[in-house]
Structures are given as C-alpha cells and as structure tokens.
Amino acid sequence: MPERIRIIVDGRELHVDRGVTVAAAMMNAGIRAFRQSVSGEARGPLCGMGVCMECRVTINREPHCRSCQTLCEDGMEVQTR
C-alpha cells in the first residue's frame, strides 16, 4: 500500500497516496475548476502533460505551478485563486 499523505487545497484537507500528482488529487476530490480564465470561465486540466497550462494553481505560495506535473508532498498547500 502506498503511503498516505495530506495536502491542503483552498483550506480543505485531502488525504492522498504518495506518488499522485496535485491535478489527480484535486480531481479525485471532485474539484473541477482549477483556475479562472481571463474572462472568468472555470478551467481545469486539458493536456495532462504540462503543455497547456490550464491546470495551473498556487502551490506553497508559488503561483502558476502546473498541478499535472507536480507530485503531492505531505503538508503541501494549494490555492486555486
């Protein structure tokens, strides 16, 4: 069994397996809107491989991180806006 770790997304605590990306963890928690587009539409992961930038979120206060290319780490804080 993979080790369980904890991340915090917009103040909500998620328990996830180590080795899972932030994008997968967020989708598994039912989160679909990862960011707002320039005209205010909700957007979520499209390419899944670090190209389209639609899944970008703030991770540990660093903005514009690609959640699909970032593995969850214990205690990680994620913000969608």
Partner: peptide, 21 residues
C-alpha cells in the same frame, strides 16, 4: 471544449497514470 472535464485523449491517459481515479 473549454469546460472542465474535457481533456485530451493522451491527457486522460496521463491523468489516470498520475493517480486520477
């Protein structure tokens, strides 16, 4: 096509392989 939940085909594979249930 911009709605959340619309992904690439390779995109879906990549997301599943990276933990999407």
């Amino acid at each position: 096509w911009t709605l959340p939940g619309v992904t690439g085909v390779g995109g879906l594979q990549a997301l599943i392989k990276s933990g999407l249930a």
